[in-house]
Write a protein that binds this DNA or RNA. Structure first.
Lengths: 137, 137
DNA sequence: CACCTCACACTACCAATTGTAATGTTCGCA
DNA sequence: TGCGAACATTACAATTGGTAGTGTGAGGTG
């Protein structure tokens, strides 16, 4: 399975995951390989949460392919299948492709506006890349 | 209400709508203001479909703000609140902004690759726009 | 005038997704 | 040898989208 929806009314990891899923991924991405208990304890620091709830969601994340589960004796250790950077890289690439594929020229028109608003320096960066690409040929 | 999610595993209008919703929007965007019956008849040409099913989904689309409903005597006429062009414009803009906001420089790195793959001419177009923007200042 | 039909409203059910949690099972160790 | 921790199984609730039955009201026709 994979991520197949990008939520426009959320932000951060919540764009890709449900709220509990997102908190779990956040923990796993900012720490070492962990057992369910470890995750549950960390979550419980903010909000009491049932162990089984955490287990269910984590196993679902395994089914989705974003977590890897490994048996270590009688406990299971979990870690993301991709680093956060890889994940964002993959997602942003996929979304960029999808956007271009779906909207083509329309998106090009927005890119500059969006870039300027987000960070004008990015426009420079983009131009550099275009120049580099041209030289290549 | 509005569109909250962009599906990466679908294409076309199905990225924004459920399958039946998408077919309904397609019809409404490619024809005049219509009654439920009109839409149902058109849909039924491909697949038998219950009048009430169509009505329910169309009313939900009104709730979501993508259709406008207008009483004409005892029948209701429906039409999109935005033209298809406006809708795609809005969506692509929103998504582009979201993407930049969420990923910033990461997306810039992908844009060229994506552009090149989608249509190399778009890169030209983008460069033109950058030049135009520079002159402006 | 009674009635029938048609358009619409209301309500409900199903499947999938996500959060929640009770109950059941297994296995190591005290 | 039986307890407790970790895991498995199962299920329920809310939400979203597809489906459709039943109820209501208004207009035309016999």
């Amino acid at each position: 399975m994979k991520i197949h929806s990008f939520k426009t009314n959320e932000s951060g990891l919540n764009r890709f995951f449900g709220p509990l899923e997102a908190r779990i991924m956040h923990i796993l991405w900012n720490g070492p390989e962990m057992a369910i208990k470890d995750v549950q304890v960390r979550l419980a620091k903010e909000q009491a949460i049932n162990f089984n709830t955490v287990m269910t969601v984590m196993n679902r994340l395994v089914d989705k392919g974003v977590l890897r589960k490994r048996a270590e004796g009688r406990i299971s250790l979990f870690q993301p299948t991709q680093s956060l950077e890889q994940f964002l890289e993959t997602q942003s690439k996929e979304l960029t492709n999808d956007l271009l594929e779906e909207f083509g020229p329309l998106v090009v028109n927005h890119m500059l506006d969006a870039l300027e608003e987000a960070d004008p320096a990015l426009i420079e960066q983009l131009e550099q890349k275009i120049q580099a690409l041209k030289k290549e040929r």
